[in-house]
Design a protein around this nucleic acid. Structure first.
Lengths: 186, 186
DNA sequence: ACACTGATGTCAGTTACTGACATTAGGAGA
DNA sequence: TCTCCTAATGTCAGTAACTGACATCAGTGT
């Protein structure tokens, strides 16, 4: 019977954020991250496609949440469906995870390379959401426009949610942004 | 009196797209690009921050067009102002540049690294547009939402404009997308 | 016992990118 | 004309991200 050890993958993820925080993203080498959990650099690259990807683990799970949210939404307009999906996905960000999200997001916004990757993940969300909408019979260009709008709202809401002074819940922020978006195109 | 030679920068830009097209982006080294115009690799990196940036030259000019478009828009809602800005910027994409844009965009969508950079440039447009709107007194969150929406419309319109079968003008596509967006949030 | 599978180690190699310093060409002014 | 200055480039050594190929090894099912 051996002492329990978390996944190598998970340990790499934690070590990476710790090191990025301590020394800065650019000044941290992949070799250091690997060494700090007792594996080789090669192993790191077997778990993560590149040095950036280690910070973007949950993104596929979030994507599923969005897609499920579309599938489970009651009948309605494209806009109502994506609103439902985005608001459902808030369960992915419970209050106790806010400190972690803050740390991670601070790292991302401070490093253009990471921000690029973040934007890329958001584009993935848009693609998945758009596909889910088309699955439900929404046609172009409404499917893509609704998907884009929804992810934009989600992203802006998330950014405010992790802002240092923010106290509102993610769902509240999202709702006010959806409302503002509605009245924009008036 | 010497034979006229275009900028080293411009020649690198052309050579890069040619080589990327001929051998593929990943299989082209920066050293090859540099050698093909008779300079060293180091010189390439003095002109372009990295291997991707060489395909994103005009983006700052486009950004200025957007900002100018906001400044020159008649009084109106945030939505009307960004519509004016986006529609003004079509002069940046005359019909004769469509073949070049098609080539370039095909290269970008085929390479995730390049797509990431593209998304990053779009985020730059959003930021500039948002700032220009705030300059005109538009407040948050309307400024950011309008900027995001406008750049989304521009991007989707551009993608359709460079699609192989597309014949409509960029302005036409943009107008129909703005209209669709308007009726989305109804 | 044996084969198989999945995760890891090892190692050599490529290439993007950077810093430091040298060189050169052309223009402005003494 | 000589000289200084600046901008662009060359040279060179170095770092670190990433990859492919192959070996090892522990566990698992048969």
């Amino acid at each position: 019977m051996v002492r329990w050890e978390p996944d190598t993958r998970e340990r790499l993820r934690e070590a990476a954020l710790d090191l990025y925080t301590a020394k800065g993203y650019a000044d941290t080498t992949v070799a250091e991250i690997a060494a700090s959990v007792g594996v080789t650099e090669r192993t790191f690259f077997r778990h993560f496609a590149d040095k950036r990807e280690v910070l973007f683990n949950g993104s596929d799970v979030l994507q599923e949440q969005f897609v499920d949210g579309v599938a489970s939404a009651p009948a309605g307009t494209a806009f109502e469906i994506v609103m439902h999906a985005v608001l459902s996905a808030v369960t992915f960000f419970p209050e106790e995870r806010r400190p972690y999200s803050r740390r991670r997001q601070a790292m991302i916004v401070a490093n253009p390379e990471l921000m690029e990757r973040e934007l890329n993940k958001m584009a993935g969300l848009v693609a998945a959401l758009g596909a889910a909408l088309r699955e439900r019979g929404v046609v172009e260009p409404e499917a893509t426009l609704a998907a884009e709008s929804a992810v934009t709202v989600f992203r802006l809401a998330f950014e405010e949610w992790v802002a240092p002074s923010s106290t509102r819940t993610l769902a509240e922020i999202e709702q006010s942004l959806f409302a503002a978006l509605r009245s924009l195109a008036r």
